[in-house]
C-alpha cells in the first residue's frame, strides 16, 4: 500500500514544483502508515532526488524514452503502477498538465477526486478529509472522499518542501504505450524566470504605469528579489504586456508568498486570481483603490517615486 505522487519532469529533470507534492505525499503516507512512492515517466537525471524530499522509493517508467505528455498514455502508466503497488491515494500537482491528468486517472480508477487541495488532510478510517479554495478564493470547502482509491491535486505553496531526506531507491519499469493520438508541433517557454503559477514572489503592475516603456522599474524590482513579473487584464488586453503575464479570474490564478501590486486598482476579477497570496503589498496613489482593503501592507504614493525607492531598499538588504 502506498501514497503515489506523480512527479512532473521538464528538460529531463524532475520539476522543482514537483518536490512539494512529494513532501506532501510523505506527510500523508506517514499519517496513513503507508509508504510514499514517487512515479516518474520518461527521462529524469535527478530521479533519486525525489527521496531528498520524502519519497521512500521511486518508480521510474520508461527511463530514457522521450514520452510526450498525453492523458491517454500517462493515465495508462499511472493506473497500472497504482494497481500494482496498491496505491491508496494518488497526488498530482495542481498544474496545467496535472489537473486534466488527475481527472482522467480518477475516472479510470473510479476514484473520488478533489483538485486544488490547499492544506494537510486528515484521515478518518477509510475517509480522507481535505480542503480547497472555492468561489475563486472567496471561501473554502471541506470535503470527504470515501472511495477505495483517492486522487487529489495539490495547490502550489501549500507546504514548504524540505530536502533533508535521503536519495530514494529507483525501480525501473517498462510499460508498452500506444501511438499517441496527438503530436507536439512546437513548444515555447519563457526562459530564465519561474513560471507564474509556481512563483513564490510576484511583482505585478497595471494601468497606473501609464506606458509600457515604464516597465523597466518593475523589472528592476522583480530582478532584485528574483520575482516573476505579472500584470492586470487591461494591460495585457492593450498589448502592453504578454498575455501569459495576466493574473486574475480569466488569466492565471496564483498563490505566491508575496504579491506586490503596483498601479492596480484591484477590481474583483483581479482579486479572484490573487487573493490566495500569503502577503499582499499594494502601491497606489488613489486612497480609494479597493485593493487596499485586500492588502497586508499599503503604500499610498506615486509609484514612479515609490518603486525605485523600494528597489534600493531591497538592494541594501541583499548586500
Amino acid at each position: 500500500m502506498s501514497v503515489l505522487v506523480f512527479a512532473e519532469t521538464q528538460n529531463n529533470k524532475i520539476k522543482k514544483s514537483s518536490f512539494e507534492p512529494i513532501g506532501y505525499g510523505r506527510k500523508l503516507a506517514d499519517l496513513m502508515g503507508v509508504e510514499c512512492q514517487a512515479i516518474i515517466v520518461g527521462t529524469a537525471e535527478n530521479a533519486s532526488d525525489a527521496g531528498l524530499y520524502g519519497a521512500q522509493s521511486v518508480i521510474h517508467v520508461n527511463h530514457g524514452a522521450s514520452v510526450n505528455f498525453d492523458c491517454i498514455n500517462y493515465s495508462k502508466i499511472i493506473c497500472s503502477v497504482a494497481k500494482e503497488k496498491g496505491a491508496k491515494v494518488i497526488v498530482f500537482s495542481h498544474s496545467s498538465s496535472g489537473k486534466g491528468l488527475a481527472a482522467y486517472v480518477a475516472t479510470k480508477l473510479s476514484a473520488g477526486i478533489v483538485s486544488g487541495v490547499n492544506s494537510l488532510p486528515t484521515v478518518e478510517g477509510q475517509v480522507l478529509k481535505v480542503s480547497k479554495s472555492v468561489f475563486s478564493g472567496k471561501a473554502s470547502a471541506n470535503f470527504s472522499i470515501d472511495s477505495e482509491i483517492k486522487v487529489i491535486t495539490l495547490a502550489g505553496n501549500t507546504i514548504k518542501p524540505d530536502s533533508g531526506g535521503t536519495p530514494a531507491t529507483i525501480e525501473q519499469m517498462e510499460i508498452v504505450l500506444d501511438a499517441p493520438k496527438m503530436n507536439v508541433l512546437s513548444t515555447k517557454r519563457q526562459e530564465g524566470t519561474v513560471p507564474l503559477p509556481e512563483a513564490e514572489l510576484v511583482v505585478s503592475a497595471g494601468r497606473g504605469m501609464k506606458d509600457p516603456a515604464n516597465w523597466n522599474i518593475i523589472e528592476d524590482l522583480a530582478k532584485t528579489i528574483g520575482a516573476t513579473t505579472a500584470c492586470s487584464r487591461p494591460v495585457a488586453d492593450t498589448g502592453w504586456r504578454p498575455h501569459h503575464e495576466h493574473v486574475g479570474q480569466t488569466g492565471v490564478a496564483i498563490r505566491p508568498n508575496l504579491y506586490i501590486a503596483i498601479g492596480i486598482s484591484g477590481a474583483i476579477q483581479h482579486l479572484a486570481g490573487v487573493n490566495n497570496s500569503k502577503t499582499i503589498v499594494v502601491i497606489n496613489k488613489d486612497p480609494e483603490a479597493p485593493f487596499f482593503k485586500a492588502a497586508d501592507y499599503g503604500v499610498l504614493g506615486d509609484l514612479f517615486d515609490v518603486v525605485p525607492r523600494l528597489t534600493e531598499a531591497l538592494k541594501k538588504l541583499e548586500s
Partner: peptide, 23 residues
C-alpha cells in the same frame, strides 16, 4: 456512484487590516 461530499464551507479569515507604510 458518488465518492466526494462537501462537509461544510468556511469563509476566509478577515485580513487584520492594511498596515499603511510611509512612502
Amino acid at each position: 456512484e458518488n465518492h466526494v461530499t462537501v462537509d461544510d464551507y468556511t469563509l476566509p479569515v478577515e485580513k487584520a487590516g492594511v498596515k499603511m507604510i510611509d512612502p
